[in-house]
């Protein structure tokens, strides 16, 4: 990407834009009606009982919210980019916490269940995802090469495979493997079934990513290699793949992140991974929200870890070139 060297005036510093923004935000807040929320409660001294405050109350709440919102944006606009990012992240995170807090969570309940969530749930989730990621990558490399080959069988099999496994919902694949294979005489446990389904499904998506990555390498690289007398396997391994990998990494990282969360589908087979525990641990005590939010935070944290790893790898390749 290219960031232009000429700095334009900030939109937020133009009165016309500020007024337009304020009116739009006001309209949205008014439409959403926050009178009965925490904000209405804060304004009780002014508008009286929020539920009884009618049009005036609703308008006052919207107006106050709009002023806070726009002033906040205006203030942030004076900071440097990095600081802006940090502030906005923090604010959004606080909003998310406020959302969670609004459920009147019982922290002691979370604390008592979290060890099991982690030792059993998180462990199983990571275990399933990690194996699936490795298997899907292997499948994708083979699938991509098969799709690019002149061998009729290889092409037919790999294109049939990607078509089928991209064409069925993952949940359906999961059931087909778990319930179908035993009827053919292969007993499969829930965890291997989940790993198989995830690997095959994501292997199919990643086959296409790898294929496109390999094909994006200019023809001249093949020609120069051929002219030197290199054979197909050598060209692929030493010339094409090393150049394709940096192109493949971002979409592959995306797939890994998606797969991590789709491992939650294993919960329908009764596998004790994060999602399953999140749904069941809170059931008896009617503490659903506590467990769901805890699982949410764990998934999110895992995703951030993957994002950081991906960014590191991308950075490494950027330095090299």
């Amino acid at each position: 990407m290219f960031v232009d060297t000429v700095i334009e005036d900030k939109a937020l510093h133009k009165p016309a834009f500020l007024i337009g923004l304020s009116l739009t935000v006001l309209a949205i807040f008014f439409a959403l009606n926050f009178t009965n929320s925490l904000f209405g409660e804060f304004l009780r001294p002014v508008i009286g009982d929020p539920t009884e405050s009618g049009f005036f109350g609703r308008f006052a709440v919207s107006l106050v919210l709009t002023i806070i919102f726009v002033l906040n944006l205006f203030a942030i606009s004076f900071f440097k980019l990095k600081v802006q990012v940090a502030i906005v992240w923090l604010e959004l995170f606080l909003l998310f916490l406020a959302f969670a807090y609004s459920f009147d969570l019982k922290m002691s309940f979370i604390q008592s269940r979290i060890p099991l969530m982690i030792t059993r749930g998180l462990f199983t989730t990571i275990y399933i995802s990690a194996i699936s990621i490795v298997l899907a990558t292997v499948i994708a490399i083979i699938g991509a090469i098969a799709k690019l080959s002149n061998n009729g069988f290889a092409y037919a099999i790999s294109s049939f495979y990607t078509s089928l496994f991209r064409g069925l919902p993952l949940l359906l694949q999961l059931f087909l493997i778990y319930k179908g294979l035993p009827q053919l005489g292969f007993m499969v446990d829930a965890v291997p079934a989940a790993i198989t389904a995830l690997s095959l499904c994501y292997g199919a998506y990643m086959t296409e990513i790898f294929r496109a990555g390999i094909q994006s390498i200019p023809r001249g690289q093949w020609e120069a290699s051929r002219a030197l007398g290199f054979k197909f396997n050598l060209i692929l391994r030493k010339i094409i793949l090393p150049q394709a990998v940096p192109i493949i990494i971002p979409p592959t990282g995306n797939q890994f992140i998606a797969m991590l969360k789709d491992s939650s589908l294993a919960s329908v087979l009764g596998v004790w991974e994060l999602m399953y525990l999140a749904r069941t641990l809170g059931q008896r005590d009617f503490r659903h929200m506590e467990m769901l939010l805890t699982a949410a935070m764990i998934y999110w944290a895992l995703t951030i870890v993957l994002e950081v790893i991906q960014a590191r790898i991308e950075e490494k390749y950027k330095q090299k070139s």
């Binding site: 001249g220 120069a224 010339i239």
Partner: peptide
């Protein structure tokens, strides 16, 4: 063919060096 190609050098208009 690879053996024959190894004995024939080729220089292209667009260089085609290996960038990595």
């Amino acid at each position: 063919i690879d053996v024959v190609r190894q004995d024939i050098g080729m220089v292209f208009q667009s260089f085609n060096l290996f960038p990595h």
